[in-house]
Write a protein that binds this DNA or RNA. Structure first.
Length: 512
RNA sequence: GGCGCUAUCGUCUAAUGGUUAGGACACUGGGUUUUCAUUCCAGCAAUCGGGGUUCGAUUCCCCGUAGCGCUGCCA
């Protein structure tokens, strides 16, 4: 860990706001964050919106909110706040607001003859490329504009010809030491004179490679930790650093998250946005724990880690080289685990929005809640009892309405649902009568789980002659209208005497 | 096509120059349970192929093979 002491660690996540926060981006952010926190370094959020065409403010917002939701906090960078658009002294942290900085370096390269204007049209380049491919050659820019005279360039620019700026790629061998992969080598004669800016007339906007290299330098980034898909971009960026006489940051390329077909996880594989998982009702701690273990493992058998424990344990040395498949079943398992561990009141609060959205309950003006169908006012303690009854069954929060709707509205069910094994109608009727008569004798205020269990169980035992299901199944079925639910005693307690009796009474009409 | 990267159960992974190659998810069977879920017990299942180095290789080296990534006036 010598390098952690030598130089202050400064790392960044640099998403482009051309889409919602992708789980892969979030994971890269997490790894950067963990690394920074562990080294007591600085974690920076920079927005790479050089592509104005595709960048949108709503995506920027989504990214920021997603990271905040996950609990990945940045020390410097872009803010959502209207008063203040960033924190830190290296700003602005949005590339679209840094054009002057890039311009200086582009001009520098141009004047030193390390870059040149190119006026080839997109169509022209495309045709040439297609031709090269068709004869089995690697596509390569023919460097046509490299020879343009100063007069020609000036004339073209004056006429408003759109142009791009190309970097004059020197032929050499680039070797860098990647913290996860070791030595990586590239021969630059396979690299085109790649583009570093585009523009027309006086306006020039930087393109990715230039912007990254300049920003990383300006922001004094010590370690570039990013996805493996950037490995082949690295030699280009090193070339640029050399041309601009910038120091080279340390590189670490993380393995990719893979879809079920082993290709890079993308939209066609299903949900990839952090916000989608948030909406589905996955907890942030689930996502953090899950993402951390995709391509990283501290060794040993412990697999449940909080973000703080991850900060303790994290090391780039333990990052894997191979890609890791996104396994929704494991995510689901972790989520169920964290839901079970969640303090009840917190979980209740988390479930509230889902109940509201499903139209089962609504908020009153006084900040209280009522059942939508009956307008009965309800309190949070009552709601928490419902949540408690389903806590261990819940895999994700969005399941809560369908699981618990029986408490908020009239239930409907098929007569056959009530039948336990091959019980005859007559026997079902007897079971319901029995349940009713037992419950009848219990005072409404004594309708609690323990009491109910103590009084009903012996009856169930007796009536079924060992098969308690003869009483318990029909009872639970008529109260819930569902094949699967929480146990009958919890249900009865939550429903209360009145509603319980009502439902049994109604059910009896089916079994005359 | 070119360049680069990678390779342990189905999946996420642990470990080691000598182990019955370990754990977790999933799956299967069973116990508890009215149902579902929880929980407990058990089971299934892996070192890509070929050469070396070595007494011994899954581990180190080379070559294949396969997969993925990149090959944009996107990032």
């Amino acid at each position: 860990m010598s390098d952690k002491k030598e130089k202050k660690v400064r790392v960044r996540i640099a998403p482009s706001p051309t889409g919602t926060l992708h789980i892969g981006t979030a994971r890269v952010a997490l790894f950067n964050y963990l690394f920074a926190k562990q080294c007591e370094g600085t974690f920076i959020l920079r927005i790479e919106d050089t592509d104005l065409e595709r960048s949108e403010e709503c995506f920027e917002k989504n990214i920021i909110e997603g990271l905040q939701w996950l609990g990945i906090k940045w020390d410097e960078g872009v803010l959502c706040d209207q008063e203040q658009n960033h924190i830190g002294n290296y700003g602005p942290y949005k590339q679209s607001e840094r054009t002057d900085i890039y311009l200086k370096h582009i001009k520098d390269l141009l004047s030193k003859g390390k870059a040149y204007y190119c006026f080839c049209s997109k169509e022209e380049l495309k045709t040439k490329k297609e031709y090269q491919m068709s004869i089995g050659q690697p596509p390569h820019y023919d460097e046509k504009c490299k020879q343009l005279s100063a007069e020609e360039i000036e004339k073209n620019i004056a006429q408003g010809e759109p142009f791009i700026v190309r970097f004059k790629t020197p032929i050499k061998k680039i070797v860098f030491n990647d913290s996860v992969r070791g030595k990586v080598e590239f021969d630059t004669n396979l690299i085109d004179d790649f583009t570093i800016a585009k523009g027309s007339g006086e306006s020039i906007t930087p393109l990715y490679h230039l912007a990254v290299v300049v920003d990383d330098q300006e922001m004094e980034i010590s370690h570039v930790i990013r996805g493996e898909d950037h490995i082949s971009n690295t030699p280009k960026q090193i070339l640029l650093q050399e041309a601009l006489e910038f120091p080279q940051p340390k590189y670490a390329h993380l393995p990719l998250i893979l879809g079920p077909d082993k290709s890079k996880l993308s939209k066609r594989h299903g949900a990839v946005s952090i916000s989608e998982y948030q909406q589905e009702g996955y907890l942030p701690e689930t996502m953090i724990n899950f993402m951390a273990f995709l391509g990283w493992n501290p060794g040993g058998k412990k697999e449940i880690y909080s973000i703080d424990e991850l900060i303790e344990e994290f090391s780039l040395e333990c990052v894997h080289k191979g890609g890791a498949m996104f396994n929704i079943q494991r995510l689901s398992f972790l989520n169920a685990f964290y839901i079970r561990k969640k303090p009840l009141m917190e979980l209740t609060e988390l479930c509230l929005p889902y109940l509201l959205a499903a139209g089962l309950i609504e908020e009153t003006n006084e900040g209280e809640f009522k059942i939508k169908e009956t307008s009965e006012t309800i309190d949070i303690v009552w709601l928490s009892k419902i949540i408690q009854a389903y806590q261990e069954r819940l895999k994700k929060l969005s399941e809560i309405p369908e699981l618990t709707d029986l408490f908020f509205k009239e239930i409907e069910y098929d007569k056959e649902l009530v039948r336990w094994k091959n019980m005859a109608d007559e026997d079902i009727r007897k079971a319901l009568d029995k349940a009713e008569s037992v419950l009848e004798k219990i005072e409404a205020e004594d309708f609690n789980k323990e009491n109910l269990q103590n009084l009903i169980m012996p009856e169930a035992e007796a009536l079924g002659a060992g098969d308690r299901g003869k009483l318990l199944w029909p009872l639970r079925a008529v109260l819930t209208g569902k094949k699967a639910s929480a146990g009958p005693f919890e249900i009865i307690e939550i429903l209360g005497k009145e509603k319980t009796m009502e439902r049994i009474e109604k059910a009896k009409t089916l079994f005359k």
